[in-house]
Amino acid sequence: MPDLVTHFASAYLVNRGWKIARGAVFFYLGAMLPDLITRPFHILFPRLLPATLGLHTPFAAFLACWLISLFFRVDQRKPVFWLLFSGSLLHFLLDAAQRHLTGGYHWFFPISGQTYSWGFIWPEDSIRYLPFTLLAAGLVFAVGRWRKRKRRFRANG
């Protein structure tokens, strides 16, 4: 997995580019969700690794997003679910770019145990690229702020 800062920054850039609807925080949460429901367990308890592999999958993410959305008021469930799930899909897209010596991700679990990845970068490379990722996100944030201030200035005459 790339680190969660990279996942978060990528979700932020996608959000700014596509102007995702209100509640973008759920898109950010979704972009971290697959790791949040698996990594703490197998980092703290390494023996749980085989059990968590099946939970770092689109199917498990779908269930987790559905579960979270069911706690919301009925009119807010659908948008919350789709924001979370699209964030999770972005997470898997970034993970798919990784290369591993051993294992990989079970994209079609529980139907298939096959692992697939494109193998462009090693898992820790995201840390090396992090300054550039943050710079891109920071630039987009700053330009957004500047444009908003300009708009407000014009509106106030």
């Binding site: 969660l4 925080v25 949460l29 820790e124 840390i127």
Partner: peptide, 17 residues
């Protein structure tokens, strides 16, 4: 060697969200 740093850094966006 960067795995530990990766794990520590990953806590920050979780706190922010």
């Amino acid at each position: 060697p960067l795995r530990r740093l990766k794990i520590v850094l990953s806590i920050l966006p979780v706190l922010l969200v």
